[in-house]
């Protein structure tokens, strides 16, 4: 599988992250998104007329939506990431995959304005981002009261991976996560997953590593 990738793109990172968590091998093809604007080059527009990254190629299959890539990788390598198959749960996972696009548009948009100086109405993007975060906080608080840590149950699914990166990077768009305790606990739960990989701005949990003294002994 070949991923057209950008190291700073949270949408590309979703795919890299699920691949790492499921032991799926990816061949990375870096795209010079910033400052080069290579995603708008004729070669990449031919592959994805929408002009977005990531793009995932597997043989004849070309996917241009990150949620579709997550579903594909999970179905191939680790179906448990698609949930138990219970109709309500499956529908909820789809619901969160759709919700993740709101996070991309709002939190991701604010991040591009604030960090890479892309054009956009920062105040409006931040306001819609905060609205989405409040919905997520409410849903995760309900999950906690049920004793579940992830979006649809006690185990993570593609829904968590789809929503995780833009939320974790909200501060890049000057949106603080301090008011959302359930979101912060959920972020920590994702970062604590076996096989978790980081991206710039999302650090690993150092405190969970073995103590250095024990490592050398």
């Amino acid at each position: 599988m070949k991923l057209y990738d950008y190291i700073l793109s949270p949408s590309c990172y979703k795919v890299r992250l699920l691949a790492a968590l499921t032991g799926t091998q990816l061949t990375l093809r870096p795209v010079d998104f910033h400052p080069g604007g290579e995603h708008l080059s004729p070669a990449l527009l031919a592959l994805n007329p929408a002009g977005s990254i990531p793009i995932l190629e597997d043989g004849e299959l070309v996917l241009t939506e990150s949620s579709a890539m997550l579903v594909y990788i999970a179905a191939k390598a680790a179906p448990e990431w698609l949930g138990s198959g219970d109709p309500a749960e499956s529908a909820q996972i789809q619901q969160w995959l759709s919700f993740s696009h709101r996070l991309t548009a709002s939190l991701g948009g604010a991040r591009l304005v604030e960090m890479l100086l892309r054009p956009g109405d920062l105040a409006a993007l931040q306001a819609s981002g905060v609205k989405a975060l409040r919905e997520l906080e409410a849903a995760l608080a309900v999950q906690r009261m049920k004793g579940d840590i992830f979006l649809t149950g006690s185990k993570p699914t593609v829904a968590d991976i789809a929503c995780f990166p833009y939320v974790a990077l909200a501060p890049d768009g000057s949106i603080a996560l301090d008011p959302y305790p359930s979101i912060r606990l959920w972020l920590r739960a994702v970062r604590a997953l076996d096989g978790f990989i980081e991206m710039p701005g999302i650090h690993r949990l150092h405190e969970l590593k073995p103590e250095p003294a024990k490592e050398t002994a």
Partner: peptide, 22 residues
Amino acid sequence: ADMTDLIHFQQMIFLQDRSILE
């Protein structure tokens, strides 16, 4: 190295610093 790889390596390093700096 491909030029894009060189750019991404340095962007990765700097963006790891950014959240700390802020």
